[in-house]
Simulated assay, not measured.
Amino acid sequence: MTISKSDLLKKIDEFPFWYHKIELPNGIVTPGWAPINRDSYGIPADLKGKRVLDVGAWDGYWTFEALKRGAKEVVAIDDFSDYLGNLEESDRNAWGTFDLCREALGYSEEQCKRIEMSVYDVSQEALGRFDIVFCFGTLYHLRHPLLALDKLSSVCQEEIFVESAISDDFSPYRGGLGQGYSGGQMVMEFYPNNEYGNNHTNWWAPTLQCMAYMVNAAGFKDVEGWKLIDNPKELPHCRGFVAGKK
C-alpha cells in the first residue's frame, strides 16, 4: 500500500531525530544531515546483483542507496549504541525510521532485511556471505575495531568500504583542530571518556594511514584511502575512507 504524501510527512515528524537525509517519493527528504558528501564514499555506481551488508545502518541511507544502485539484497545491522553524545534514549527509535523509509520506497523485507546485532556477532553462520560490505560511521565507536574488521572480512568475498573519524587533522591531546597527525603516522588515539566530540561512545580515531593498514591486516588487498576534505575546518569534516578488495 502506498503512503500518501501527507501521511508520510506526518510519520516523519513523529520521530524526534533523524541522522540520515533520505530521498523518498513525492520530493520528500528526511530531515537528517548525513552523509555530508555522498560521492566521497566511493561506492560503485553499479551494484547490480550484489549482496550487501550495511553495518551501523541507522535510518538506512546506504541500505537504500545500495538497492537503488541495483543490489539484489541488502542486510542492515545496528545495535543502536550511539547517541551522538547528547541524544536521549527516546530520540533513537530502533528500526522505526528505517521501516518507514523502507515502506515508502517500496522495498520488501526479503530485499532489505534488518537485524539488531553487534558487529562482533557477524558470521557466515548467522548472515551468510556478502559481495560488498559497508562499514560507515562505526569503526571509531568500537572498543575492538580490528576484531570487528576481522569479523567483516570473514563474510566478505569482494570489497569493503570503511568510513571513520580520523586523527590526521584533529587531536584533543595535541591542541584540537589542525593539530593532528598530518605526516602519515601509523597512529590511533584512544578516548577513554568523551575526549572526541563530547561523545563517550567515540573510543578511537586512527590516522588514515593506520586505518588503511588495519583493513589490509583484516585480509583485504589493493587498499586505498582518502580524506573527506583535505584541510577540514571543523570536527565533523575530519573523516576518512578506505576501500579494500579480496
Rank of each mutant, 00 (worst) to 15 (best):
residue 1 M to G: 07
residue 2 T to G: 05
residue 5 K to R: 09
residue 7 D to L: 12
residue 16 P to M: 08
residue 17 F to P: 00
residue 22 I to N: 04
residue 26 N to E: 11
residue 29 V to A: 13
residue 31 P to T: 05
residue 31 P to V: 07
residue 32 G to R: 01
residue 33 W to V: 14
residue 38 R to H: 09
residue 43 I to K: 08
residue 48 K to Y: 04
residue 52 V to Q: 04
residue 53 L to K: 15
residue 54 D to T: 12
residue 55 V to H: 01
residue 56 G to S: 06
residue 58 W to D: 10
residue 61 Y to Q: 08
residue 63 T to E: 06
residue 63 T to F: 02
residue 64 F to R: 11
residue 68 K to F: 14
residue 69 R to Y: 07
residue 69 R to V: 15
residue 72 K to S: 09
residue 74 V to P: 14
residue 76 A to D: 10
residue 78 D to E: 12
residue 88 E to N: 14
residue 96 G to V: 05
residue 97 T to I: 06
residue 99 D to L: 11
residue 103 E to W: 10
residue 103 E to R: 12
residue 104 A to F: 11
residue 104 A to H: 10
residue 106 G to V: 09
residue 114 R to D: 10
residue 114 R to V: 15
residue 116 E to Y: 01
residue 117 M to T: 15
residue 123 S to N: 11
residue 123 S to E: 06
residue 126 A to C: 08
residue 127 L to N: 05
residue 129 R to I: 15
residue 130 F to M: 03
residue 134 F to T: 08
residue 137 G to Q: 04
residue 138 T to L: 15
residue 140 Y to A: 05
residue 144 H to S: 13
residue 145 P to L: 06
residue 147 L to A: 15
residue 147 L to N: 15
residue 149 L to A: 07
residue 153 S to G: 15
residue 159 E to L: 06
residue 160 I to R: 05
residue 163 E to D: 07
residue 165 A to K: 06
residue 169 D to V: 11
residue 171 S to I: 06
residue 174 R to A: 13
residue 174 R to W: 02
residue 174 R to I: 13
residue 178 G to Y: 08
residue 180 G to A: 05
residue 183 G to W: 00
residue 183 G to V: 01
residue 183 G to S: 08
residue 191 Y to W: 03
residue 191 Y to K: 12
residue 192 P to G: 05
residue 193 N to W: 03
residue 197 G to N: 10
residue 198 N to I: 03
residue 203 W to S: 14
residue 208 L to N: 00
residue 208 L to V: 01
residue 211 M to G: 08
residue 213 Y to V: 01
residue 215 V to M: 04
residue 217 A to I: 04
residue 220 F to L: 06
residue 223 V to I: 08
residue 227 K to D: 04
residue 230 D to L: 02
residue 237 H to N: 14
residue 240 G to I: 00
residue 242 V to W: 00
residue 245 K to R: 14
residue 246 K to W: 10
residue 246 K to R: 13
